[in-house]
Nucleic acid binder design. Structure first.
Length: 400
DNA sequence: CGTATTTGACCAGCGC
DNA sequence: GCGCTGGTCAAATACG
């Protein structure tokens, strides 16, 4: 798995904002008790057998995470207090937010429903929406989207500014261009072995293009996020030229909407890995400048010599996680995906032997997720999302 | 019929 | 300036 972070603040979803946390809490409450994954996964199949397989795999892959969620319902109060203490560490805030979103299933925050939540038109469980009173006028939103797009096109045609473009097409308003410049600087690349045409990350994507890239016989597919209204997040999917069993997924931009439950649940676990990657001794190995982030060299993440490296040609740092690489035999902490010692520590608890107890301990529920992570390369996408979120929250505290 | 995908065309950036 | 390349658009097509 390879993760490239090209900007200091690559927030896929700015969880540190209170409103967004409320979104998450509301969503978790909202979907609680529903059958796993049905409510958050719409059909992705285009009619052929392969994608049908993908859909089935997605549902099956959801199960361990649902189990993790259920286990979190039984989490002790002590553990919650333990989590509260974690909030004192700014660099741990993302983990806590995600965990709280996971364990808070009693609906305490229902009255705090953010009206913006109603703007998201792709939560497919309309029945639940109606029951909760949060009606989603899908057709109305689609008409609104089209109106916005038409306005944007008119704007760009009559307002030929010299604003710098960031690899975008021609049909974009000045305001949107400005937005894109800010939002699309983030980039996260994931390398994972997968036979599927696209790994499932809990989000909804719509394909908008495909190109043959130079030096690779496999076409590169372009997707955009369709969950939020005019969500700027894009992703590219391409098979590795050297090893076509490796799927390279590159995410770019920040989601402007709450993540679907499936993505949140996965991120709740994988954010632990993200935390490990973006905190601790990492700053010892890279340039110490705080802002803007500039890497002067390639660094190997501590404890993850074959999983994660950081490198960049300034000013864009690159974190590279490669779960496709084989791991040494006989390592008791090897989970098969290269998530050796430090990540194992996150999953199993603080390792007092090496003195590094600053890493987040997610407790027993995550052991289920660990198994899922070991068995499911699609979680790489969730990890990428989590890492992006973590790094955004670590701005100023993590040297990148 | 509405929505998603495909695919050729178009545009901008970049190197020569 | 020109050609190459990557990224996006949008009409055509497929699908449920």
């Amino acid at each position: 798995m390879e993760i490239e972070i090209l900007e200091e603040n690559p927030r896929i979803f700015p969880m540190e904002h209170e409103e967004n946390q409320k979104h998450v809490l509301k969503e978790m409450d909202f979907f609680q008790g529903s059958t796993c994954s049905k409510e958050v996964h719409t059909k992705h199949d285009d009619g052929d057998g392969d994608d049908e397989q993908i859909e089935k795999s997605t549902i099956e892959d959801e199960v361990p995470w649902k189990a993790s969620e259920d286990n979190n319902n039984q989490i002790t109060e002590d553990k919650i207090v333990k989590d509260d203490k974690m909030t004192q560490k700014h660099e741990m805030s993302q983990v806590l937010n995600l965990r709280q979103a996971t364990i808070n299933t009693n609906g305490d925050n229902q009255e705090e429903l953010n009206p913006n939540f109603l703007d998201h038109d792709n939560y497919s469980n309309d029945e639940h929406l109606n029951e909760s009173g949060a009606r989603d006028d899908h057709s109305s939103n689609m008409a609104h989207k089209k109106a916005i797009l038409l306005a944007a096109k008119k704007s760009i045609s009559s307002n030929n500014t010299n604003m710098a473009r960031v690899g975008m097409g021609a049909s974009m308003s000045k305001a949107k261009q400005s937005h894109e410049v800010t939002m699309r600087q983030a980039r996260v690349s994931v390398r994972a072995r997968s036979e599927a045409s696209m790994i499932s990350d809990g989000c909804q994507w719509r394909k908008y293009g495909q190109k043959m890239a130079k030096g690779n016989p496999c076409p590169r597919a372009y997707y955009r996020c369709t969950i939020g209204t005019s969500c700027p997040v894009r992703k590219q999917v391409q098979r590795c030229a050297e090893d076509r069993s490796i799927l390279i997924t590159t995410y770019e931009g920040q989601h402007n909407h709450p993540l679907p439950t499936a993505a949140i649940t996965m991120a709740a676990t994988t954010s632990a890995a993200a935390s490990m990657l973006t905190t601790g001794s990492m700053s010892n190995q890279v340039d110490g400048s705080m802002n803007p982030p500039v890497f002067s060299q390639t660094a190997t993440l501590p404890g993850l010599p074959s999983l994660a490296t950081i490198s960049a040609s300034a000013p864009f740092p690159t974190i590279t996680l490669d779960l496709t690489r084989p791991q040494p035999q006989g390592n008791p902490n090897n989970n098969g995906l290269g998530l050796v010692s430090p990540l194992q520590q996150i999953f199993t608890g603080p390792n007092k032997e090496n003195g590094n107890s600053n890493l987040p301990y997610l407790g027993e529920p995550v052991s289920v997720a660990r198994a899922a992570l070991a068995a499911d390369p699609t979680l790489a996408a969730a990890l990428a999302t989590a890492i992006s979120s973590m790094i955004s929250n670590n701005k100023g505290t993590v040297s990148m």
